[in-house]
Design a protein around this nucleic acid. Structure first.
Lengths: 117, 117
DNA sequence: ATCATTGTATTATGTGAATAGTACAAGCGG
DNA sequence: CCGCTTGTACTATTCACATAATACAATGAT
């Protein structure tokens, strides 16, 4: 994974979003074991505490679960995963329409711009 | 103006974006005089320094200009303003397509989801 | 001429994010 | 049993953002 960050959003938020995306599109599969906090932190060139914070939050969402001393795993609930993908897509659609409306474009005009991408 | 902020992005960045939007859609018109830094800060319930920082940046973009002791004004370059609107719209389109692709949706599927909004 | 308002600058303080370093209990493999 | 790896917790420090409180030169209005 590339682990690219920008500076205007807290890193742990960006980590959450990137992992969510990886789960949603199946880069991480249901039941997969994650690398350890320390390994992931090293890979992302980030402090272990920061990675830990992101993972904890993903766990509260039920996308991960922890087995105390053996590691962290992706949820086995495939329904939850496909729901996540649809939810993320819907958020993008809603957000796009909203922003285009704020810019004074109708849904039809927005769709037209999409075609001519 | 509402001046709504969220907590995951620096306030001065959000101010910049909101003012850009207001200029792009003509809420602020070319040549308009802005309220003073202090007034804008009070309106947005933000520290004058924070508002100042945002306005300075907009000035570097050439969207505002300052007359030393009389106030700040929107650029009179209407071409720049309409270019801004198109640029912001394009950014939304590009971003939308990119995000949907990352989620595994083709441009056609994305367009389809738009229709069924 | 005086005064209020303009943008701008400076210093101090508080807060959250991120880093660095360390520590510990729990379990798995040898 | 021993040692390594797991997640987790804690303290200390740095940094950017934001606030607070002033200060000042320039100018337009009175």
């Amino acid at each position: 994974m590339p682990w690219n960050f920008n500076s205007n959003t807290p890193i742990y938020i960006q980590i959450i979003e990137q992992i969510k995306l990886s789960i949603a599109v199946g880069e991480y599969k249901a039941g997969d074991k994650l690398l350890s906090v320390r390994e992931l932190a090293a890979e992302a060139e980030v402090n272990p505490n920061t990675m830990q914070k992101a993972l904890s939050e993903l766990e509260r969402d039920g996308l991960l679960y922890t087995q105390r001393t053996s590691g962290r795993f992706i949820t086995s609930d495939t329904g939850k995963i496909s729901a996540l993908r649809k939810q993320l897509a819907n958020e993008q659609v809603e957000n796009f329409i909203l922003k285009m409306q704020m810019l004074g474009y109708s849904s039809e005009e927005a769709a037209e711009m999409l075609k001519n991408h």
